[in-house]
Simulated scan of single mutants.
Amino acid sequence: MGELTHWVLCWRIERRDGVTIGLTAHDRDLVIDGLVHRAAPGMVPSAVVRSDGLEADTMDVSGAFTAEAIGEGDLIAGRWDGARVAVFAVDWRESAIRVDLGQGTIGAVETGEDGFTAELLGVTAALDRPVVEETSPECRAELGDARCRVAVAGRRRFLNVVGVDGAVVTLDAAEPIANGYGGGRLRWFGGANCGMEAAIAVSAGATVTLRAEPAFAVAAGTRVAVIEGCDKSIATCAARFQNAANFRGEPYLPGVDLLTRYPGA
Rank of each mutant, 00 (worst) to 15 (best):
W80I: 00
A178Y: 12
G255R: 11
G166D: 09
L75Y: 00
G102A: 12
V61P: 04
L120I: 15
A265W: 09
A40L: 10
G166M: 08
Y262H: 15
G229F: 09
R147V: 12
N246W: 03
D27R: 13
V19E: 11
A225R: 15
H37Y: 05
G53E: 14
G166E: 08
P137N: 11
A173R: 14
V8D: 08
V218Q: 09
V224M: 08
V36S: 14
V19D: 10
A219N: 13
D231T: 09
G82L: 00
A96V: 01
T111R: 01
R28E: 15
G163F: 10
A244E: 15
I106A: 06
E14W: 00
G34L: 09
L30Q: 07
A192H: 11
A265N: 14
A238L: 12
E228Y: 05
A40K: 09
V168H: 01
T260D: 14
F88E: 07
R129P: 05
A220K: 11
D114S: 09
A141Q: 03
G154I: 02
R187S: 12
C139K: 07
P137W: 13
A239F: 04
D33V: 03
F216S: 01
L35D: 05
G71K: 06
G22I: 14
T236N: 15
E72A: 04
A219I: 13
R240D: 15
Q103G: 12
C237K: 01
V131Y: 06
G184F: 10
L54R: 08
A225Y: 02
W80S: 00
V90A: 03
I177Y: 13
E133D: 13
P263D: 04
V208C: 07
G122C: 11
I227V: 11
K232M: 09
M59H: 01
A238N: 14
